[in-house]
Simulated assay, not measured.
Amino acid sequence: MNARIILASASPRRRELLDQIGIAYEVRPVDIDESPKPNEAPADYVRRIAAEKSAACRAQTAPAGLPVLAADTAVVLNGRIMGKPKDKEDAFAMLRLLSGQTHQVYSAVSLRGQEHGEALSVTEVTFRKLGEREITAYWATREPADKAGSYAIQGLGSVLVQSIRGSFSGVVGLPLFETAELLLQQGIQVLHE
């Protein structure tokens, strides 16, 4: 199947989600500074990063002519953006903070084709109370090491989640409803004959 879009991400989870909806893509990740600006609101942060990724990729791949899709996801607790853990202690601290709490996952999508389209998904995720032994055992799986908020809802981290309200795929890293809407605006149908 010929690529219909360029995916400006190396994330295997985003690739799996695009595969799930049958959108063929070519992977061309970009490397940008993803540091939040001082006092930047989480919604503004993820929108900015997704837009910067798609713009950087578009600048590098302009001759291809395919729309460029980029996304960014942030785990947010009490207004604080929780990135990927720096080390074991950082992961443990994040998981302790998330334990028994409801947090938000902001996922922004940017699609650059004939025009630039953007979308934002916000999902509430509630963790059950976690014990220290459980946090230690979860860390030992290595799953939390490179995940925002130190968990992966699509993996073993699913057993930590009591409930979600919103987009499961948005928590994974690419909200499919919003992505499909943006693709349709560029003339790319997910469901077609």
Rank of each mutant, 00 (worst) to 15 (best):
Y25I: 06
E143I: 05
L182N: 04
A180R: 09
A56D: 07
G173Y: 06
V122W: 06
I21F: 08
P144T: 05
V122A: 04
I153Y: 08
R58E: 03
L66W: 02
V76I: 10
G166S: 09
C57H: 07
W139C: 08
Q114N: 11
G117L: 00
G79L: 11
A51C: 12
Y106L: 08
I23A: 08
M82P: 11
V109H: 09
V105L: 10
E40P: 14
R15M: 15
V125N: 05
R28H: 13
Q20E: 10
Q162R: 15
E124I: 00
M82N: 04
E178T: 03
D90L: 08
A55S: 13
A119N: 01
F127W: 06
A51W: 07
G173Q: 12
A59D: 13
S99A: 11
I21C: 09
G187V: 02
K147Q: 14
F168Q: 10
G173V: 13
R142I: 02
I164A: 04
L176N: 01
A51R: 15
V190R: 13
E193I: 00
L95I: 13
R15C: 12
N39D: 15
L111W: 01
Y106P: 14
V30K: 08
L120P: 15
D33M: 03
L69R: 14
R80P: 00
V105M: 10
Q20L: 15
V30Y: 06
S110T: 02
R80V: 15
L120G: 07
G170N: 08
L17K: 08
P42M: 03
I153R: 06
A71D: 07
L130V: 10
G65S: 09
A148R: 02
D90T: 07
V109R: 05
E193V: 01
A64W: 07
V159E: 12
E178C: 01
V75L: 12
V27E: 02
A180F: 06
M1F: 03
S107A: 13
E132A: 15
R96I: 12
G79W: 05
P144A: 11
A140R: 10
P144E: 09
A10V: 09
G170L: 11
A71C: 11
Q162F: 04
L7M: 02
L66H: 01
A43I: 01
A93R: 13
